[in-house]
Amino acid sequence: MREKHSTPTVELFVSPEGYFQELVQKGLSQRKVQTFPMVEAYLVNLLQHYLDARNLHDPAYASESGARNPQTLAEMYLTAQNAESFVKAEMLRKLGDRTLYISGFFGDSLSRKIIDVDYYAEIGGAAYASLAHCTREDTMARVYTVFSDRFLEFVDVLTYISHHSFIKSDESILRLYERYMRTGSELAREKLEEMGVLTLPQDQVKLGKQS
């Protein structure tokens, strides 16, 4: 009887960060947006952060002080301008990042509202510009200036990523990946592979949990 020889299947592991990096590079290329590596890295971190939709919203009240958090974009911007330096930088970064992400991923719904993408771009661009002025680190100041001056270009990049990937605001690839590594769930593995994230074989996952 002839022996059957099966060709071994090699599965490569692509980290969530690597997955998002490929998306960002493809989006920049497709939209013909030229920039430098720190801006690419910033966009990758942005995508990872906002995969958890809870990061798009602040609670109505600050947990420690009990003071009411600003709820509108204008309130956030004005509050940031009057805050102490560290708090100011954090609020401006959050405002810039949030308006950029929402404009890219939810721009279609914004176009049907009174507050449209142009308003988000105006507030977000102003937040990044102010952040660039109060940031001491030269490289990050340059990154924020790029986003301020070319806000709508990067909205287009995120919109492209939104339309040509499996990223959804209500599903976290990171959480799926962690679930697969923790439990070896076949369902989690299948969903990850549908999204383009190749996973380690289960025997290697089990071996990693034992070591």
Rank of each mutant, 00 (worst) to 15 (best):
D118C: 07
V87D: 08
M181N: 03
G96C: 03
Q204I: 01
S103E: 08
E122C: 13
E171W: 04
A188H: 01
L187P: 12
Y177L: 06
Y144K: 10
L176G: 12
I123F: 00
G107T: 14
T135C: 07
R182E: 11
H163E: 02
F105Q: 05
R189S: 02
K168M: 06
R136F: 14
R182L: 13
D116K: 14
G196S: 00
I161T: 04
Y120W: 13
V197E: 01
H163S: 06
M195Y: 02
R182D: 10
F105I: 10
D116V: 11
Y128M: 09
S169P: 01
A126E: 15
L192D: 04
G104A: 11
A89I: 11
K168E: 03
G124M: 12
D156W: 09
T159Q: 00
E137N: 06
G124Y: 10
V117R: 12
Q202H: 03
T135S: 05
S162E: 07
E90T: 05
V205S: 00
S111E: 03
Y120F: 13
E193D: 01
S130K: 04
M181G: 07
H164F: 08
R179D: 15
A132Q: 07
K94I: 01
K94F: 00
T159Y: 03
R150K: 14
S109M: 07
Y160F: 10
G107C: 04
V155L: 04
I114L: 14
R136C: 11
T99G: 05
I167D: 00
T199P: 06
T135D: 04
V117D: 06
V205L: 04
T145Y: 02
